[in-house]
Design a protein around this nucleic acid. Structure first.
Length: 596
RNA sequence: CGGGGUGUAGCUUAGCCUGGUAGAGCGCCUGGUUUGGGACCAGGAGGUCGUAGGUUCGAAUCCUAUCGCCCCGACCA
């Protein structure tokens, strides 16, 4: 039991001016965190308690054995936060990952040896765990294994945002599974997905698993855990049939599987379009070519070589989907890079065979499936101020490969059910990847099987943003008065508001109640401050403790105390004689409702 | 990194346009009256006006630079 007067809960009446969203304001007003600098936060005693509870639940769920998948539980370890830059240089994503890493020097750098070793602050730990496992595990008998840690991660976020939501330094659970083969890796993946789901369920936050893009991490498939919230950074595309995917990854059944190729509608014909540089201009008078009858040709640079992406005029490129093409780094090409290859400036570009000035320079022409819906359409002539009409997809376009590159729009048919797709914002609180052998190959993490054959280990990696989850819970569970903590992670589960701390019998009863609640399994905060009742009630709502008990002189005269769950309006009056017993009962009921 | 905004007491802020005494509320300290939803009265402490230059007799205010922070975009747990 903690006494408020002796503890430290610095609440604020007003929101700091730099907090924008509800959860960020409440984090600070309720005294959970304080800002050191952009994206850097001190966890105050109350905030730390929540973090510790989240971590404890996370450990429990990860370490639980998973007989359904034949998996043992994950094993905790602790890796350095400071990594030799060498590890990253040897890994598969140095070029892409260095952008977000902090480089660390020691304060005396330059005064000692001519060449100082370089260090980075770890943004994640594949580059550390994989060499470790290579060194320690060489036999199939030691597989599968799944290691995890809960610790600080450092990412030089280009733009920290919304308090803990996107911070430069944050707390993450990261786990890494190592399996002998792909089937095993899938089992590990599913076991971790189940563990994460169990974790979020026990925390008391609604987080849904959605299909996700693998991004810089690489790998073959991936899910994100999303907490639905307007302030989230991601769009989740979903249907009532249970399909859910990050917009970056989402597809639709817009193009029927049995769509026949359109027959040519006539000879390709060049026509002058002076000054026309956009889809909209071509759609307007006097040309009047609807956007969805135009081919849009985009030029990107993939690992130094240009490639084309062809979309319907009204469709937008979903840039993340270009990741499937296998380039390490890609970016839009500049006009100066485009002209020598295609022969025209943006606005008159096309992918029609024979019009591309230097087709050999291209790393490929990739067309979205949806262009097949156009059949015959209009596109740039690769000659400034000219377009081509009657361009037939199969006859005329120099397509290397079709793929899914367009951004899905709400209302399109769900790929599973055909129901209209919907969209909502979400906060990404977890992300799991089946990595395959990408890292194992690079670091030589291999094992010997029972036929003396060597194979690369098949990996998976799994992250949960612990500090971000803390804020996501607040975002999802608050009202105008403050936070409404779920029981399992509340900094305290019972708050005893002692309205008359100077009244000896009131203090004695409050302490007795505190002891009873504690014995029943709750963490108890006793508000023994010499404050007016209004202040105590406001603070109680603000800090969001799930069960509030009021002990006051007036109640005692009437022979009652009050108990009120944070989430409801009406308080329960309980006779003093039954108080300890009933409170203990309420605590036990609340606790058992959330464990398991 | 591009675009927008903003720095005044522990917090929220007024003053800046149109240069001359830096003001309020909350919080804090002392005393008193209060005490079931952020009390009241009296008194008090606390500010190099982000920083550095410049203009001026005189700069929180005008100019320049710089730093921090916030928001929008790309990135991510």
């Amino acid at each position: 039991m903690k006494r408020w007067s002796q503890f430290f809960v610095p609440t604020l009446k007003e929101s700091p001016s730099d907090a924008e969203i509800a959860s960020h304001k409440l984090l600070i007003r309720a005294g959970l965190v304080r800002k050191l600098g952009g994206g850097l936060y001190t966890f105050m005693p109350m905030g730390l308690r929540v973090m510790q509870k989240l971590s404890a639940l996370c450990r429990e769920e990860l370490e639980r054995e998973n007989p359904e998948h034949g998996r043992a539980g994950a094993i905790e370890l602790w890796m350095p936060h400071l990594h030799p830059a060498d590890n990253w240089e040897q890994g598969p994503r140095w070029a892409a990952a260095r952008e977000i890493m902090f480089r660390a020097d020691h304060a005396g750098a330059g005064k000692g040896r001519a060449r100082e070793p370089e260090f980075v602050l770890g943004p994640t730990h594949e580059e550390v765990i994989t060499p470790l496992v290579k060194q320690e595990i060489t036999s199939y008998r030691d597989l599968p294994k799944n290691f995890y840690q809960i610790g600080t991660k450092f990412r030089n976020e280009i733009r920290p945002r919304y308090g803990l939501m996107r911070a430069k330094e944050f707390v993450m659970m990261d786990a890494y599974s190592f399996d002998a083969d792909d089937d095993g890796a899938i089992k590990s993946y599913l076991a971790m997905k189940a563990a994460d789901e169990a974790f979020f369920r026990r925390v008391g936050v609604k987080a849904i698993a959605v299909e996700a893009d693998t991004g810089v991490m690489g790998g073959s498939f991936s899910h994100e855990f999303m907490v639905p919230a307007e302030v989230g950074d991601d769009d989740v595309i979903y249907s009532d049939a249970g399909y859910a995917a990050n917009r970056e990854k989402a597809t639709s059944a817009l193009v029927p599987a049995d769509l026949a190729d359109a027959a040519p509608a006539g000879e390709v014909e060049k026509f002058a379009t002076p000054g026309v540089a956009t889809i909209a201009q071509l759609a307007a008078e006097p040309y009047s070519v609807p956007g969805d009858a135009q081919f849009k040709t985009l030029v990107y640079m993939g690992d130094g070589k240009p490639f084309l992406v062809v979309l319907r005029g009204n469709d937008e490129l979903e840039e993340a989907k270009l990741g499937a093409l296998g380039f390490t780094l890609f970016r839009p090409a500049t006009a100066d890079e485009i002209a020598p290859v295609l022969g025209a400036r943006p606005g008159s570009l096309g992918a029609v065979r024979g019009t591309i000035k230097d087709p050999a320079a291209l790393a490929g022409v990739f067309a979205d499936h949806a262009v097949r819906l156009i059949g015959n359409g209009v596109t740039g002539a690769n000659e400034d101020g000219f377009h081509l009409r009657h361009v037939n997809v199969t006859r005329d376009l120099a397509i290397t490969k079709f793929g899914d590159f367009r951004r899905v729009r709400p209302g399109e048919p769900c790929p599973r059910s055909g129901q209209p797709l919907q969209s909502r914002r979400g906060i990404e609180v977890g992300h799991i990847f089946k990595l395959g052998t990408k890292y194992a190959d690079k670091f030589g993490a291999a094992y010997t099987d029972d036929h003396k054959q060597s194979h690369p280990m098949v990996m998976g990696c799994y992250g949960i943003g612990i500090s971000r989850t803390l804020q996501a819970v607040i975002e999802q569970s608050h009202d105008a008065d403050g936070i409404i903590w779920p029981w399992a992670i509340a900094p305290f589960q019972v708050l005893i508001c002692l309205l008359d701390p100077k009244l000896p019998e009131a203090l004695a009863l409050a302490e007795q109640l505190a002891a009873a609640a504690e014995a029943a399994g709750a963490d108890v905060l006793l508000d023994d401050r010499e404050e007016r009742p209004g202040v105590k009630f406001k603070d109680a709502d603000l800090i969001g403790v799930p069960l509030r008990v009021v002990v006051g002189g007036k109640g005692l005269q009437a022979g009652v105390i009050e108990v009120k769950p944070r989430a409801v309006k009406e308080a329960l009056k309980i006779p003093v004689a039954d108080a300890t017993e009933q409170l203990a009962g309420l605590v036990r009921a609340a606790a058992s409702a959330v464990t398991v």
